[in-house]
Structures are given as structure tokens and as C-alpha cells.
Design a protein around this nucleic acid. Structure first.
Lengths: 165, 165
DNA sequence: ACTTCTCGGATATTAGATATCCAGGATACG
DNA sequence: CGTATCCTGGATATCTAATATCCGAGAAGT
């Protein structure tokens, strides 16, 4: 049970894109450099988010990525599902139908109780993630950090230290 | 994000052990044969559950496994954590401290908001699993299936068909 | 003492996550 | 219209974790 690191990357990138001026695009190299991520691999996750309809990618000069929807309408679950997929973490192998205690198929009208319990827990997990939006993440970001990020997106390069606030 | 199949095995085995007569032990070969599982690999998961204090393994003739606690006091989460471990599925890499937008450590007094959100979701998942016990799983088992399992544990071998009820 | 049975370590095998590269196509700009 | 820029998608390599098996050591019953 481990979540791909792409989820972290995707959430950070989505938050960053939400800070960009409306309509502006951010190049992939810029996103990767912002967090010192491998650009080629980050591309895979950005593509997945674009396919999911969260981002729009614009090719050509002055191109790059931007959010498709306002940050208030993009949930953390949206990003997680775009990157990780929508498959359930628990896959019932129906072992109750195998072995010495095999239950004949005609008695398996009801799904396995274990499967139900695991799916319920997964629903609770997803509901929790659905309750937080990208906009919420920005709210929890410290104002000076947010300002520095916005400045970087505008192309301003902060003086070496950047810690003298 | 995928759960080990050992979780399914562990939950089925715990349920089965709960059906065994009080104080009786069930051999590993019997557990594996019950669901047509590879005995050698199942042993790994049973060991993990024994280490977690859910099962007790008795060596020697007439040995085998039994539950350490009554089924009402063993939660599904107990089994999941025994098999899968207690590590969080989301591991924050603190990429906010890296790259062009690196936040100086002295400003990182508060944990990353993304990390918090993911941990909250994990707490919700665990809380859901903690709300169901092995005894609850038995309640959701169909009576005729439960009886057949109990009979098998007593060493009775049902007639070929077993579907003529 | 001998048999029976589990434990733990060592060791393959396989699948998925991580990471990189390049040809192809779309767009802006001169 | 040609060129530089930038994303897309596929092919590929690497690495880690899950899956699976085997065997010697040790404990308990007879």
C-alpha cells in the first residue's frame, strides 16, 4: 500500500498553476525546476492530468500548461485519481470460491463481506480527499511563500538568500 | 495504490479461525487448502499476524494456529496493519524545500498542507476499517456457508457435490 | 529419542514504479 | 513559408517491492 510520488508532484504543480495569472501558461521545464523534479518523468503525470481534463497543454512557443477549471472546483481527489487511476486498492480474488471450502457460484449472489468492508473504507478515503480543493490548499499556504511563488511565476528571480523577510 | 493480496488471505483465515471450536488449533496446511492458497507464502502472512499478537502458533504435533483474542475484539484494521504494516501510504518528499521555489527550513514549521490532507484521508480509511470486527464478518456470512466451514474444521468431508442443500 | 510441526532466513521470479530518450506534430513568430 | 519552441506518445532501461518457494533449526507431543 503505497501511493505514487506522482500524486505529490501533481498536487504541488496544480497548486502552482493555480497561482499563475489567469490565462497564463507555465512551461514544463519551469514546473520541474520549481521543485527540482525530473522533467521527463513529470511529463508523464502532467499528461495524465491533461487527459483527465484538469490541465490544458498548449504546444508551441509561449505554450505550456494551465488549469482547465477554477481551483475551487478541482478537488484533491481529482488529482489523485488522474495520477493514480480509479482502480480500487483492494481486489477481491474470490478465494471463497476456491479450495476445500469452495462455495458454489449459485450461492455467491451477495458480494464477499470482506470486499464490501474494504470498498467502504476506500469510499471513506475518497470522500475525505473530495472534501478538499486546490483552492483550499492555497489557503493553507503561508502568505510569504505564496508571494514568492507568484513572483517566480512572473519570471522574477529573488535575490540569492530569499530568506531575509 | 494497491493492497497486498495477503490482506484478503489474512481476513479469510482470521474468520475461519473464529469458526473453529474454542481452544482448537488449525494447521497451516488446512488453512491453505481451505482456500487453495500457496501454503509456503501464506505462512509469511500468518507469521506477521502472530507477531502482531492476533494469532498464536503452536509448534509440534496437534499444533497449528488459533486466535489470541475473541473475534469481537479483533478489528479488520488489526489484520490489515498486521499484514500491510502501519506505514502511511503517502510519503511526503518535502519537495517544497527543493528547486527554484525552495522554502528555507526555518519557514517549514508547519507540515506541508498536502501531507496533512493525505494523512487525514488515511485516518478516515483506518477509522472505517476499525469499525468492523472479525465477529461482524461472521454475521454477514450466510448460515449454510458458515455451517459448511465449521463442518470442514471438524474434519468432516462433505459429499462431492455439497451444493444439494 | 523420535516424530510432527512451525519459525525464520535465504533465495528466485514477477510486476509495477521510476526514469530517460527521441520521433512526430502543433503553434507562434519573423 | 520556414524556423524555433514546446507538448505528445511510444519504446526502453532500471530499480524496488510483492509474490512465491525451499530448507535448516527449534519446539512440543508421544
Amino acid at each position: 500500500m503505497k501511493l505514487s510520488q506522482g500524486v505529490e508532484w501533481g498536487l504541488h504543480c496544480a497548486s502552482l498553476l493555480a497561482l499563475a495569472p489567469a490565462g497564463a501558461t507555465v512551461r514544463r521545464e519551469q514546473l520541474a525546476g520549481h521543485y527540482a523534479l525530473p522533467e521527463a518523468y513529470l511529463a508523464k503525470h502532467l499528461q495524465a492530468m491533461a487527459r483527465a481534463g484538469l490541465l490544458r497543454a498548449t504546444p508551441g512557443p509561449k505554450g505550456g500548461y494551465r488549469l482547465c477549471r477554477p481551483p475551487e472546483s478541482i478537488t484533491v481527489l481529482d488529482v489523485v485519481e488522474a495520477v493514480e487511476g480509479r482502480a480500487r486498492p483492494f481486489l477481491c480474488q474470490e478465494i471463497r470460491q476456491r479450495g476445500a471450502a469452495a462455495i458454489p457460484p449459485e450461492e455467491c449472489t451477495v458480494p464477499c463481506a470482506i470486499n464490501t468492508v474494504m470498498d467502504d473504507a476506500d469510499d471513506a478515503w475518497r470522500a475525505s480527499l473530495r472534501g478538499v480543493t486546490i483552492a483550499d490548499l492555497l489557503t493553507r499556504m503561508r502568505p510569504e511563500v505564496r508571494k514568492r511563488n507568484e513572483a517566480l511565476l512572473r519570471g522574477e528571480r529573488p535575490a540569492n538568500g530569499s530568506a531575509h523577510e
